[in-house]
Design a protein around this nucleic acid. Structure first.
Length: 195
DNA sequence: AGCACGATTAACT
DNA sequence: GTTAATCGTGCTC
């Protein structure tokens, strides 16, 4: 695929909430054993700055959060709950810690491979959660820090069809039960409705 | 000690 | 059909 189809770095170098909203409808592509696995992004969340108490950067610059402080357009992949990987896209200017969590996609290419990696599950449950997306597309800690804007990247994004406002649900982020307000309820979650 | 979750089970309508 | 509760797992601070 020609490079002009890929999202360039400027796409990520904006306000994190704007990036999270605009990522809906774009395509996530993973090259795995030479095969394209991809899907349309249908759910994202914004995590922004050290003041955002829902964001990992609330702990400041650590070995874990270092990637979030770096250049936009990189992958921040972390491990949690003893078994799950999560994929984020680093946003805003170099030095400011922020990222968009990828929560769900609609599978597009490499369906057989995705089905095999989610064996035994109904199609609806293949990629409808952040850890499920990572399992389906073979994304793990080895992807942490990857530059998604390099031509040879095996993980990147491509332009898709933007989702109109009428088909987007906005609400509070998921799984922040012990986070104080206003961060717990701030509407930084974006979901594209099914067509 | 807590965690940006998922699978399973139980109890509902 | 749905929602609520529980727990596994190991890394981070």
């Amino acid at each position: 695929m020609p490079d002009e189809q890929r999202l360039p770095r400027w796409f990520f170098a904006r306000h994190t909430v704007e990036v999270a909203r605009q990522l809906l409808g774009m395509r996530l592509v993973r090259i795995w054993h030479g095969q394209r696995l991809s899907g349309v992004i249908v759910e994202t969340e914004a995590y922004r700055g050290e003041e955002d108490l829902g964001c990992h950067a609330r702990a400041g610059l650590t070995a874990r959060t270092r990637v979030m402080y770096g250049q936009p357009g990189h992958a921040y992949v972390y491990f949690t709950y003893g078994m799950h990987w999560m994929l984020n896209f680093v946003t805003e200017e170099d030095g400011f810690p922020a990222a968009v969590l990828l929560r769900a996609i609609m599978p597009l290419e490499g369906i057989e491979t995705i089905a095999a990696r989610r064996k035994g599950k109904p199609e609806r449950l293949w990629t409808n959660g952040p850890a499920k997306v990572c399992q389906a597309l073979a994304i793990d800690g080895s992807c942490n820090g990857l530059d998604l804007c390099l031509p040879q990247a095996e993980l990147f994004l491509e332009w898709g069809k933007p989702i109109p406002d009428g088909r987007v649900t906005i609400g509070p982020r998921v799984g922040l039960n012990n986070v104080p307000e206003p961060w717990k309820s701030i509407p930084w979650r974006f979901v594209a409705l099914e067509q």
